[in-house]
Amino acid sequence: MFDKTRTWATVAVACLAWACGGGGDAGAGGEAPAVEEAAEAAPIIDPATAGTIAGVIAFKGEAAAPQAIDMSEEPDCADGYGSEGPLTQSVVVNDGRLANVFVYVKEGLDLTFPAPPDPVLLNQENCRYHPHIVGLQVDQPLQISNSDPLLHNINTQPSLNRGFNISQPQAGMETTRDFGVPEVMIPVKCDVHGWMRAYIGVLDHPYFAVSAADGSFSMPKLPPGGYVVEAWHELYGVQTMDVVVGEGETVEVSFTYDAGMAENAEVPLGEPLVLGH
């Protein structure tokens, strides 16, 4: 269910952040604040004392096998895949390591980070999103592009930010949007191609990572301190861990998922309202 109190609290916090110089709202396409932000100084992280949280996401047991996607309606896209054809990306396990886990610092930071000006890319190619999991900062530009010679619509469904749904009917089209409030995670879908899914994590700081094909991730340049780190997976849910980073230290952290977790996983995202009855 929709946790109203929490939402309000989060929004209240977000509003504060906004009032203190955040600005910009996803969907409404506000561009203006970028100038002010550029003026805002980034917190200085002393490279001599900064540490790193790095590790791997392990997977135990039998992972749900990737499913074949029926792209027969879209031969232009289907042709882009080898003989095994297109497969779902929700669970990618290699040698006991889980890819596509969003790892981020959930608590423990009290610094304000301005939005980096460089856009983060979300590309649609062969009727799939690249990457499948996207991380970016509040107000950082998200550049959505279409590499397919056909219609995609980009339907984002956040609950704390405003969602938008736009068409990209042609190859080469690019659109830039941003999100004004931290939110983990925002589902993205294409209604023309029901199998297309991506997830966007929006944070008000740069300490996040997506586990690679070998399950590894790394969050460098962290000021020393105690943090709560969360790992998010679209099927297996979230796990958190307390981590203390000493001066100049690289802390090895590993999360372990197992197949059974899919059963009662809590997967926070755009929290679709569950209706009664």
Binding site: N153, I154, N155, G163, F164, N165, I166, S167, Q168, P169, Q170, M173, E174, T175, D191
Partner: peptide, 20 residues
Amino acid sequence: TGLDGTPMPSNQDALEAGIV
């Protein structure tokens, strides 16, 4: 404008991109 909350997308961006 599109119809938010439904699959019906907005074509404003396609207009701004000069596709239509």
